[in-house]
């Protein structure tokens, strides 16, 4: 499946990915409203990790063997059988944080939207995830590497 890959050698650490992710998951979907009125209530699903000169954007890897999926007790986390995308349904989430505990890369966060978890959904419905589309240095790639290997 197509996944997001970060190129830390090219990441500027500008955090535009976080901003555009937040806007894409806001109610208004307008950048100024989202970043001012709604800011405290939305979690950016992608997060720029920084250590010294190294920066990169991290999102859910949509693992083939998703531990979060196995750990979820309410069935809030499911896999779309058609696309393979690991999805999170906030309505079913009870905020037990087992997914956060089990995620090997730390890509799931406590959401600001309520007592629920928050994770990347690969911007369902968009041609490409907005973090990828808006990265000014093409440091995020959205591609199917398994397909390429074949």
């Amino acid at each position: 499946m197509k996944r997001i890959y970060a190129r830390e050698d090219l990441c500027l650490g500008c955090r535009l990915c976080e901003i555009h992710c937040l806007v894409a998951h806001s109610k208004s979907r307008r950048i100024i409203s989202a970043m001012t009125r709604e800011k405290g209530q939305i979690t950016p699903r992608c997060k720029v990790e920084e250590s010294g000169q190294v920066t990169f954007a991290l999102q859910c890897r949509h693992c083939e063997h998703a531990r979060c999926l196995e750990a979820c007790m309410t069935g809030a986390i499911t896999r779309d059988p058609a696309t393979g995308v690991v999805l999170h349904n906030a309505d079913k989430c009870v905020g037990c944080w087992m997914c956060l505990m089990s995620c090997p890369v730390g890509a799931i966060q406590r959401g600001r939207e309520g007592h629920v978890a928050s994770k990347c959904d690969l911007c369902q419905g968009e041609a490409a995830p907005v973090c990828v589309a808006n990265c000014p240095n093409e440091a995020l790639l959205f591609e199917d590497r398994e397909e390429r290997k074949k």
């Binding site: 500027l12 650490g13 500008c14 955090r15 535009l16 901003i19 950048i31 100024i32 970043m35 001012t36």
Partner: peptide, 13 residues
């Protein structure tokens, strides 16, 4: 000020 969203991209760049 009406447009700035305090995102600090400029600071980092």
């Amino acid at each position: 000020p009406d447009r700035c969203i305090n995102c600090q991209v400029c600071v980092r760049q």
